[in-house]
Design a protein around this nucleic acid. Structure first.
Ligand SMILES: O=c1ccn([C@H]2C[C@H](O)[C@@H](COP(=O)(O)OP(=O)(O)OP(=O)(O)O)O2)c(=O)[nH]1
Ligand SMILES: [Mg+2]
Length: 784
DNA sequence: CATCAGCTAGT
DNA sequence: ACTAGC
DNA sequence: GATG
């Protein structure tokens, strides 16, 4: 707090800093300190520092007497809190000590203080002067200059994160903690990761200087020309070394692949049949293209996998009928393995293998061959030379707010995004989102530059769909990435693998696939579907038919949806599925927004005749502002707080009957357990009446008790990925969120299975309240 | 190696 | 329990 | 399939 600076800034800092407690005390010598600790250990059987505050007081004295090598957290005020006592026994929390110490927490504290951070005991934390407003001092600037106080909650398990409220309860002198409002814009709650990244990032600078033999203290003089040259040379040397290491690695990989193949070949010829022996699945080098892509018991066609078949050393696939084992060995033996050579050596084998299977999509065959020859890393190296990639991979504004399970950006106020380097770009993007008045611009557009990539990824997702858990998550992963790709800037053909991997949620396998799609417009996996897969894909487009039933029907001999239509009972389809089948063509179509509006209004008209006080809302993609919807989602409720407290019980039953009479409701696909319950849900088919050309549409009507509106609105607005994300966040923080409400104090077993329902969080009136409670920045439905 | 939302309805 | 769907 |  002694640094010279504008007065307004020091006002913030002074208020937020400890009232000089540890500093003022006379410093003890090392011997005295050791003595004191040993004595403490003797007198107390427990840890000599049972709370954070006590250890901080100790560390402040002890460490400041030591010379610090790297003070990269110099000037950072950090408050470590431990909410453990809270989450372990919420009911008896008052009796337990606040901010108890813990072995892991001690480590965090030590790291922080060793790097020059100013630690503040949580009990001594004082909220900054509220009179300093963000107008006077830009919070970003304050952050950059180190005026911000960072609160770091200690996290024992990623499965049980502290809630914002718990963190606040650990701050300040009072047991009750402090309120959210008191914190203001100059206090940020961050993850420990933030501390670690500061240390890691900034620690590198002095290290370089140290290697040069220069002064590694903070204010070292600027480098001389000679030193600069030394740095350059060293960098070049390292680059050369890295290149050599990489080459050696690639060579070794190839050799390993080769060795594996040789062994297999030997085995094959030993067991006499050389044709479709199989067994090539066991080749050691795993291609990043995913053997998971293939269903149980099926084998990819020749030429599918990298390294395995088309590598210049590895020669042609042993599976392939035309291959002659003798030549494979001979061709590979030369060891050169240059692309040209491979191309000239056995052009037919390759062309037949790849060409036939991939149906000669322009460029695809070449791409596969190229990839198989060089591998992703080498191709990246080549691309490094082209200057088009870096900036392209900054996502558009939207994505920052909702990458993956993070509509929630953890602890609210930006927080864990406080990595200095990325800050400006991110902040800018964020602002542009709020400034963007045009909702079209921020929403993923269906004809954006990456639409084709997204579509192909979605097709791969459907391929992965299955009832087995593993496959479900693979499907979701593809879907998630498809959604992200839609929101990204155009992905150029020369994208680098590592740039794609840098996006959170995209890993090396999908990155490879995206590259393949970007360059060729498709993926080889889609070019070599089996007949069953092709049929299953068509059949699962029917309402009520998923992967399992589709495959069953395909096995039973169905070749197309038309086959099913002809004889639905033969395949043991359920009643709803048969209805879905009947209207298959209509239900494939998306519904234009105007038609949703029209249907909604005519249904609302019917409802008003039954009970005008019952409210009907159109939810789902319609509420999110979509230009077209897959179905119509209606919410039915009735305000019970006003007037007589009458509910909408039975309304849905009456409404549905009225819709049937009016010719709007065509048929019922599934019915609620209790038609008269408040949470009744009907699932059916409908159409605009009195119009010959009106298509049949899917409709969901959901009843919602008035008290459950906030949670129900979130649920029914979606989308599904957003719901999963916010529910996951709730779960990790000890809550449970479903369509009925937000529950707290949920106890779960180790596997996350809930043991108690938890208790409804009180005081929740609106959607916003739930967002706030979970520290999810508010997002209008159109931005979800 | 564990984790990935939480629920209803039909068979 | 499995499948499909929101 | 991606992540911690
Ligand atoms: O697995 C799911 C599917 C849906 N929902 C919620 C969110 C979604 O917004 C709402 C309605 O579902 P629907 O399937 O109608 O999706 P939608 O968002 O309305 O899109 P569309 O109907 O245009 O396909 O139900 C979930 O919570 N989980
Ligand atoms: Mg919908």
């Amino acid at each position: 707090s002694a640094r010279s600076s504008p007065a307004r800034a020091s006002k913030v800092a002074a208020a937020a800093t400890v009232k000089g407690k540890g500093r003022a005390k006379a410093r003890l010598s090392l011997e005295q300190e050791v003595d004191r600790v040993l004595k403490l250990r003797k007198t107390k059987l427990t840890d000599p520092f049972p709370t954070v505050a006590e250890l901080v007081a100790h560390l402040v004295q002890f460490t400041s007497a030591q010379p610090n090598a790297k003070r990269c957290l110099e000037g950072c005020r950090i408050v470590f809190v431990n909410t453990e006592h809270w989450s372990s026994a919420p009911s008896t929390s008052a009796k337990l000590t606040r901010n108890p110490m813990d072995e892991g927490l001690r480590l965090c504290l030590t790291v922080a203080i060793r790097h020059g951070a100013t630690l503040i005991p949580p009990e001594e934390f004082v909220a900054p002067d509220p009179s300093v407003s963000p107008d006077q001092l830009d919070p970003d600037q304050a952050e950059a200059e180190g005026w911000t106080t960072h609160i770091v909650p200690y996290v024992l398990s990623q499965q049980r994160l502290p809630t914002y409220d718990q963190i606040l309860a650990c701050l300040g002198p009072d047991e009750g903690g402090i309120s959210r409002e008191q914190l203001g814009p100059f206090v940020k709650v961050v993850k420990y990761k933030w501390v670690a990244s500061c240390v890691e990032k900034r620690a590198k600078v002095p290290e370089t200087m140290y290697l040069l033999g220069g002064d590694f203290r903070q204010h070292a003089p600027p480098l001389t020309e000679q030193q600069k040259r030394a740095v350059k040379e060293r960098a070049q040397r390292m680059e050369v070394q890295a290149k050599q290491a990489e080459q050696a690695r690639v060579a070794k990989t190839k050799l390993r692949a080769r060795a594996g193949k040789d062994a297999l070949e030997a085995e094959d010829s030993g067991s006499d049949h050389g044709s479709n022996g199989g067994g090539e699945d066991e080749v050691e080098v795993v291609s990043p293209l995913g053997s998971q892509d293939w269903p149980e018991g099926e084998k990819p066609p020749a030429g599918y996998f990298a390294h395995q078949t088309a590598s210049p050393l590895g020669a042609a696939p042993d599976k392939h009928d035309t291959t002659r084992p003798g030549e494979q060995v001979g061709g590979g033996g030369s060891g050169g393995g240059v692309a040209v050579e491979a191309g000239e050596d056995e052009p037919e084998g390759q062309a037949v293998a790849a060409g036939a299977r991939f149906k000669s999509i322009p460029g695809l065959e070449q791409e596969v061959q190229f990839l198989n020859t060089y591998g992703q890393e080498v191709m990246d190296d080549v691309l490094e030379e082209t200057p088009r990639t870096a900036a392209l991979f900054e996502l558009d504004g939207m994505c920052i707010l909702d990458d993956d399970y993070d509509g929630d950006r953890d602890t609210g106020e930006g927080t864990d995004e406080s990595f200095d380097d990325e800050e400006p770009a991110k902040k800018k993007a964020k602002r542009s989102v709020w400034a963007c008045d045009d909702p079209e611009g921020s929403v993923a557009s269906r004809n954006g530059p990456n639409e084709n990539i997204a579509m192909v990824l979605e097709m791969m997702a459907d391929l992965a769909s299955s009832t087995t858990e593993k496959q479900q998550f693979r499907q979701r992963s593809y879907k998630k990435i498809a959604g992200m790709v839609r929101k990204m800037r155009e992905i150029p053909k020369e994208v680098r693998h590592k740039d794609l991997c840098a996006v959170h949620g995209i890993g090396k396998k999908t990155a490879s696939k995206i590259i393949e799609i970007a360059r060729t417009g498709t993926h080889r996996r889609l070019q070599c579907l089996t007949e069953t897969e092709r049929i299953a894909r068509e059949l699962s487009g029917v309402y009520g038919i998923g992967k399992a039933i589709a495959e069953k029907a395909a096995k039973a001999g169905a070749k197309s949806v038309a086959d099913l239509k002809r004889d639905p009972h033969k395949y043991g389809l359920s009643a709803a599925t048969i209805k879905g089948l009947e209207h298959y063509d209509d239900l494939c179509e998306r519904i234009p927004r105007a038609e949703v509006t029209e249907l909604y209004e005519s249904i609302k008209g019917l409802s008003d005749k039954i009970d005008p006080k019952v409210q009907i809302e159109c939810m789902g993609s319609y509420r999110r502002g979509a230009k077209s919807s897959g179905d119509i989602d209606l919410l039915v409720t009735r305000d019970t707080t006003s007037s007589t407290g009458k509910t909408h019980a039975g309304h849905i039953a009456k409404l549905w009957r009225a819709m049937e009479r009016a010719g709007i409701a065509v048929s019922t696909l599934s019915e609620p357990d209790q038609w008269h319950g408040l949470a009744a849900k009907v699932n059916g088919l409908c159409r605009l009446p009195d119009r010959a050309d009106a298509k049949v549409r899917r409709i969901d009507i959901l009843g919602v008790p008035w008290e459950e509106m906030p949670a129900a609105l979130i649920y029914f607005t979606g989308d599904d990925h957003f719901n999963r994300s916010i529910r996951l966040k709730a779960r990790k923080h000890g809550y449970r969120l479903n369509q009925r409400g937000l529950y707290e104090n949920v106890s779960r077993d180790r596997k996350g299975e809930k043991l108690t329902e938890g208790t409804l969080v009180l005081g929740i009136r609106t959607e916003r309240d739930i967002f706030k409670k979970l520290c999810v920045p508010w997002r209008e439905p159109t931005l979800r």
